[in-house]
Structures are given as structure tokens and as C-alpha cells.
Design a protein around this nucleic acid. Structure first.
Lengths: 159, 159
DNA sequence: ACAACTTCGTTCGAATTTGAACAACGGGAG
DNA sequence: CTCCCGTTGTTCAAATTCGAACGAAGTTGT
């Protein structure tokens, strides 16, 4: 009766870390979602699309590239870009180097929107997460979760 | 031109922590979702419902209480409990002390399901998160995110 | 006891998400 | 140049999520 075929269950500390991660993630997403919706009429996902575009050279990105940055499905991105297009915040144009390609780009209105939405969002992220942690905790979190993300990406993208 | 009305933007370390958190969370959820669906036919949310029930005294919990543990909406829980009921994994009975109350309880089939689904799930959580981090990183994560969660809960539940 | 307020779980409609299937295109081996 | 295979973005149906509104039942203060 050893642990031959028994899985290695999580001990108390491991469980605390895992639960903390899941719970914090859910609670945080909920709050940010509410704040963004009330404050700017954007979902968190839509906000993130604008952010990634505004951080890209020329405020534009290929759909697939954008989907990878967002960690979302391609079909989900198609849907959301269409929404943002209807709101006039994002435009679509075709890719010069690849006929199949579609490039999403920020409109002037989109740039203005992110300029107005960002302060409130960042303030809340700060209040709820960043300023709650010490500098050391932040560093550990960044390095640890960075490594976790990197490995997960390697798994998903064999090449 | 000071920072009077300028928000305090995230510096490089803070941004790394925040992005790491968001990205790791999304990637992790995706992987766990896939694994559970393929392995047991459950969504992550459904799995979590079973876990919380099986951890509760009598394998049963009030709907509201369960919703809080899961960090989900009440209507979302209603939906999922109905799904699990159709699968024969969970049952509903009324609460003795409150006519309005509904108690969700694990069925024998539900207990059997969680028994079979848990090992694969835990193994993946271990592989993707727990075993990637050092003991110290885990401790920091648990404490830091525990505090973040606690504050968020206090916000949501004024009383 | 009564009114006012809160809580409980569900229902409803709308928005979102996903994977599979698809058509069209790129790109390299032969 | 072709054939073959991977990629690209979209469409589609199905599943899930949420908040608001609801009826019904507790709870509190007077």
C-alpha cells in the first residue's frame, strides 16, 4: 500500500497556492469586468484587444498574432474585432504580404477610447493587486508565472 | 507637467507581474479545460462544483454558499447544477431550515466521477504550475494571492 | 403584528466563447 | 510547375455566462 499508482496529491501549501491563484483570478476578472463595463462600456477582452493594438508598431496586428497575445481562440477574436469595428474603435485591412491575412488596426476613435479607459483600469489593477503586494512578492510572481506561461506556450506551440 | 492628474502607470516589474498573471491564468484555464473535457467529459467549472461538494460536510452545500466558493454568479450555478443533475452527478433537495433554500448534494455517481477525474487533473496542475515553481515561490504565491483574494472578498461582501 | 428591507434560487434575454468545418491561399518537395 | 500539407480567418451550432427582474420567503425595527 504505497503510492505506486496513487497520484501525488497537493499538500496544504500547494493547495493554498493553487486555490489562491484560481480565486484571485476569478475575483479579479469579475471586478475588472464590472469596472470597465461601467466606466467605458468595454469588456475586459475588448479592452485588452485595444491595449495590444496600441502597443504594436503602427497600432496594428495580424489576427492570428493578436489572438496569440490575447490567449484566445481565433473565432473568439473574429467576433470581438467585429464588435469593436461596429463601435468604430478598430478597423480591418488586408495584409500586403499575404492575401489571406487580415490586419486589425486602431482607429483614431480607438486610440481616444484607450486613452480614456486606461487610467481607471490601471488604477484598479493597482489597488486590487499591485499595491497589495510587496516589491519582492511582485518580483517572485512575475518570474514564477512568467516561467509557467513560457512552458505552457512551448507546449501549445511545438514549433 | 507633474503627475498631478496623471495616473500611476505600471512600471516594468509591475507590468511583468500583471501580464504574467493574466497570461498564465488564461493558458492554464485553457489546458485544464481541454484535459478535463477529454478525460472526463466535464468542464472545469463542473469539476470544481464536484470538488467543493465533496469537500463539504455531507457532500452537500447550499446554492448561494457554493456560488461564493466558486466565485461565480448564482444564475451560472443554477445552470451548471442543472447540467450535473442531468448527468446524474448531483442532486437537489430542499433545505430544512429555510424553505427558499436549495441544497446541492453529490450522488454516488458524482463521488465516483470525482474519484476518477481528480488524479488526471491534479497531475496536470502539478505539471503546469506547482512543480514549475520552487517551494519559496509557492509560499509567496499562496500568501500574496491569498491576501489579494481576502481583500477582494471584503470589498464584495461589505457585511 | 406589520411594513420595509434583505435574501434565495430561478428564469429570461442577450452577449460571448468555443471547436469543428470550411474555402482560400502559401510554400516547399519532387 | 504541381501536388500536398499547413496556415488564415470566418462561419456555424452549441454551450456557457452574466445581470436584471422576479416571486417567494426570511428578518428587522417599531
Amino acid at each position: 500500500m504505497s503510492s505506486l499508482n496513487e497520484p501525488r496529491w497537493l499538500d496544504q501549501d500547494e493547495m493554498a497556492a493553487w486555490r489562491g491563484f484560481v480565486v484571485a483570478s476569478n475575483l479579479l476578472n469579475r471586478r475588472l469586468e464590472r469596472q470597465l463595463k461601467e466606466d467605458s462600456g468595454l469588456s475586459h477582452q475588448q479592452y485588452e484587444i485595444l491595449v495590444h493594438l496600441s502597443a504594436a508598431p503602427g497600432d496594428a496586428l495580424r489576427m492570428t498574432e493578436l489572438a496569440e497575445k490575447l490567449v484566445t481562440s481565433k473565432s473568439g477574436l473574429t467576433y470581438q474585432v467585429t464588435q469593436l469595428e461596429r463601435m468604430g474603435l478598430v478597423g480591418r485591412r488586408s495584409c500586403p504580404s499575404d492575401v489571406r491575412g487580415v490586419i486589425a488596426e486602431l482607429t483614431d476613435q480607438g486610440r481616444e477610447m484607450i486613452r480614456r479607459a486606461a487610467p481607471g483600469h490601471v488604477a484598479l489593477v493597482r489597488e486590487l493587486l499591485i499595491d497589495v503586494l510587496t516589491r519582492e512578492q511582485l518580483a517572485v510572481l512575475a518570474e514564477g508565472l512568467g516561467e509557467v506561461s513560457a512552458r505552457l506556450r512551448r507546449d501549445e506551440t511545438p514549433q
